[in-house]
Design a protein around this nucleic acid. Sequence first.
DNA 1: CCAGAGCACTTAACCGCTTAACCCAGCTAA
DNA 2: TTAGCTGGGTTAAGCGGTTAAGTGCTCTGG
Lengths: 336, 336
Amino acid sequence: MGLTIRDVAKAAGVSTATVSNVLNKTGKVGPRTNRLVLLTVKRLGYFPNAHARHLASRDSRTLGIIVSDIVNPFFPEVIKSFETRARQLGYDAILSDTNYDPRRTREAAERMMEHNVRGVAIMTSEISSQLIQELERRRIAVTFLDLAPVRGYVSKLRIDYFSGIKQIVEYLHKSGHRRIAFIAGRPKLKSNIARMEAYESCMRDWGLEPGPIVHGDLRYEGGLAAGLHIAKLSPRPTAVMAVNDLTAVGVIKGLLKGGCRVPEDISVTGFDNTRLAEYCNPSLTTVDIHRDMLGQMAADALHELSCSANPQGREYHIPAELILRDSSGPAPAEKS
Amino acid sequence: MGLTIRDVAKAAGVSTATVSNVLNKTGKVGPRTNRLVLLTVKRLGYFPNAHARHLASRDSRTLGIIVSDIVNPFFPEVIKSFETRARQLGYDAILSDTNYDPRRTREAAERMMEHNVRGVAIMTSEISSQLIQELERRRIAVTFLDLAPVRGYVSKLRIDYFSGIKQIVEYLHKSGHRRIAFIAGRPKLKSNIARMEAYESCMRDWGLEPGPIVHGDLRYEGGLAAGLHIAKLSPRPTAVMAVNDLTAVGVIKGLLKGGCRVPEDISVTGFDNTRLAEYCNPSLTTVDIHRDMLGQMAADALHELSCSANPQGREYHIPAELILRDSSGPAPAEKS
DNA sequence: CCAGAGCACTTAACCGCTTAACCCAGCTAA
DNA sequence: TTAGCTGGGTTAAGCGGTTAAGTGCTCTGG
């Protein structure tokens, strides 16, 4: 098919080893030959075969990222910054989307192993411990989001959900809200449970009874259903915290359809500060977590782990910051 | 590092060829041995090395997709359906984001060549004809969005922009609008020019004078600036067509900031029908093009091209459909 | 004058797979 | 009986690179 290193070597009148050394900048080649080879490469339009290169060097110089749903506006920015940083560090990056499906999660992890990645950033919760062990056995560096403890090859990116949730509850409480509902994600996910617990704990800190918890699906549709449900409750909560922005936008739509005004009758908050939060109307009070930082940190963490001879997983901390917009306001006066 | 096919062969007491034949389901292996090998593979936790496999088989079974900006909500769905379909067809998929940067576009194309992809879906406009020739020379199947003529290895996915724009103009005209502005994308892009021409042509069809045309950047920011600009014009257009939803959302925000009401004073339309159009407020009148269809078609087209011995590029057609929402309405009565 | 050290390359042995070619027992058919 | 399949394997030659080891040179110092 394409050209091989042998073609280039022949055309330049040198050995394949020399061509390889030139392309890899090992500095073992004299300046004359170097120029000659580079010229020949350009002239022929040669590109080295990545597969052969990876195979021969026993190093894929590839980093993987597994996300649950690329359509979720949380992820594209993370992916982009991950990929950008990986490239800066000299890695190739591959992406897998699991669509929240355990089977596809397994396939994604297998794909990473087949590609012999040096490290993989796992940004989905539904991954079996078996797979994780498998990755560890092969000494593949891993970063998790929130869940899983730090170990040799495992670093952790801790988004400060707790702090974010705390800030929301505090703000809502200060605004006079007392019945604050929570729209969670999918019931079984560890990350989801952690957030629910954070919510409950923060509520109790202010002497509030954790209020109805409704499960969504982290998507718009789940939020919509939850909003419709909340609108019919009596007594109705005066504020709704959603587990992410997408859900919050759905909640708002559901509430509006159910005849509630936002924020006059009921305040809604999101989480993540996706662009959506800015665009939607009313624009969304939410918690910003630096997604670009997240992707970059993941790449850096994997780089560090996979380079060190004696890798020591670390915990990276991603701060959360409350962003006030138009979807929240003071609690309505009680009618009673 | 990891296990090799030799380890599996040894453990099962067969040759490596047999293991390979089992894994590739060539049907050359008896049922007893087949089961034995499969069992051994499971037991040892073996995964074949993709690089070695691709190299030896001289076939990467990989499809690539190059997009200009993964953060643009137009793309994630396209990518997702592309990837899903590619997997169904037995391909691995790799993604590159060019960030609208010619250098990165070049790098992306090079990456595709290095990975020896069978085909690549190019969903960005700024690609040099040199690169395209390079791809053609290597007999890599290609699909383009809109631009470029169909050739041997090149298929084209034609989004019916013209029809979409025509529908919008027709609708706006019928609603009484006479001064209809257009917010374009980046001036130099071919795709952008095509759309501007479509706009001008459709306007003339209704006896309307095109203009003003303001250039944006296909993003929110560009739309915002354009909206602020339009708000100050006199006479002010009564309707604004934006080149995509993201821009339209920016335009709306800009107009609101500039003191215009949407849609009472001025109607705004988008293009693409991203989820954003549904979420934003006022929800956006826009044109739907089936993005999931697009990704799937791209994968199908590449599959077809790369499999056929004598490939014949085709044109695929993606219909456009006007979606009426709340950002548009009848033209305001003239004050004069 | 020669051993030894550098320099600038070449030679060739892999990397982990696939696959064409070959092998062989057991059958069938002539 | 024997040639000719055929099903179920094995052997070994690559795929396109990398890289350790080797080969001539020239240069230096004792």
